[in-house]
Write a protein that binds this DNA or RNA. Structure first.
Lengths: 197, 197
DNA sequence: CAGTTAATAACACGCCCGTGCTATTTAAAA
DNA sequence: TTTTAAATAGCACGGGCGTGTTATTAACTG
């Protein structure tokens, strides 16, 4: 229902009919439409996190560092029908949360940033952090933070273009862009390069 | 009305009431709700194009090449209330066009790509193209096309994060990210650098 | 001036919606 | 078995909506 008509289309009558219940029965569990939609948001984000997290932790194929990171990043992108559906779900929830801001801040952004922080950490030759919670903290190397932010932003742009203008940005177009951006990440030990004439 | 409730909230009765007219009177000009919304989409994109185009063609302040290009790009970003409003309008139209695909393809994407193509063209030392229509065509240098696409995607990501997670990505955060990305654009004449060991 | 068309208004019908309220069935507890 | 609470169903009210139809006013034309 969210995919068809957005979160505003999640209506008491509609959900009840689709589930084969009556509206009164449904309202025994969700006394408001607002409660129903809040539950839908919670369930959607939980389901997505459960589906996305193991996907980026699968064993990686052999290859160069850039190609390995690129493979991980591409797992996050809406490149096929299934992931397009996931992303549409996620952006419906994001938009709804922007109009109805929740009590506690959203943690989705920090989860993603931690993933890209680990990618850049590995690319610059540091030991990858094993503890997932520790990856939420900023890295001592400022260049790691900078390029994690750049990569994070770039991937958001890729996803946005894949969803909004699929005719212009396709799965084939993504790969060389991503590879070139990753190759532009400066290697460790050259931090002062940009400051020299 | 679009900003408040999205394009689905552009209703015959609502527009008529807000304009001080009657529904019958409004429907003398738009016989459908669909016609009304289609007109709203057209008017919105036209207005936005008229407002955005002269903004990037203003005389630029002196400074380095990277800073000049960064200033142009930052003009496109939703960094203040007015441009946040414009961007919200634009994304409401984009989302509506994704659910109701129009007859002729959207030209907004090509307009933007042409802008970033000219930025990269200038950064790599080529003569900037004077004819605006000619900038719509691909540049003979593949690296220009590649980095125009990267910049385009990156700016989309910046805009997306500024709108969706303003607490995490602010105007102050944008500047160093954008500057570092622009500094990573390879200068002309070094195309084969990546292929050498 | 009369006549014709555009412009504006008003109403009615049917649909979907949220929500409050009241029955009825089911299940557990005493 | 009786009692009690939970679970399910159904109905009714008011409201917003798109749209078709008809009436009224304005403007233009001959």
């Amino acid at each position: 229902m969210i995919l068809r008509e957005g979160l505003a289309g999640v209506t008491v009558r509609g959900v009840a009919a689709e589930a084969g219940w009556s509206t009164g029965s449904l309202r025994h569990y969700f006394k408001n439409q607002h409660e129903l939609q809040a539950y839908v948001v919670q369930a959607t984000t939980d389901t997505l996190r459960r589906r996305v997290l193991p996907r980026v932790q699968r064993p990686r194929t052999a290859g160069s560092v850039v190609e390995g990171i690129a493979a991980i990043v591409q797992e996050m992108l809406p490149l096929d029908a299934e992931r397009r559906e996931e992303y549409a779900l996620w952006s419906a929830v994001v938009e709804w949360e922007r109009q109805h801001p929740p009590e506690g801040g959203s943690t989705a952004w920090n989860d993603q940033r931690a993933l890209y922080r680990q990618c850049i950490t590995f690319m610059r030759g540091y030991e990858p952090v094993r503890d997932p919670d520790q990856a939420t903290l900023p890295h001592p190397d400022d260049q790691v933070e900078l390029w994690a932010a750049i990569l994070h932003t770039f991937v958001d742009g890729l996803a946005s273009q894949l969803m909004n203008t699929p005719g212009e940005m396709s799965a084939d177009t993504v790969a060389p862009l991503l590879r070139s951006l990753l190759e532009a990440v400066p290697p460790a030990g050259l931090d002062r390069r940009a400051h020299q004439p």
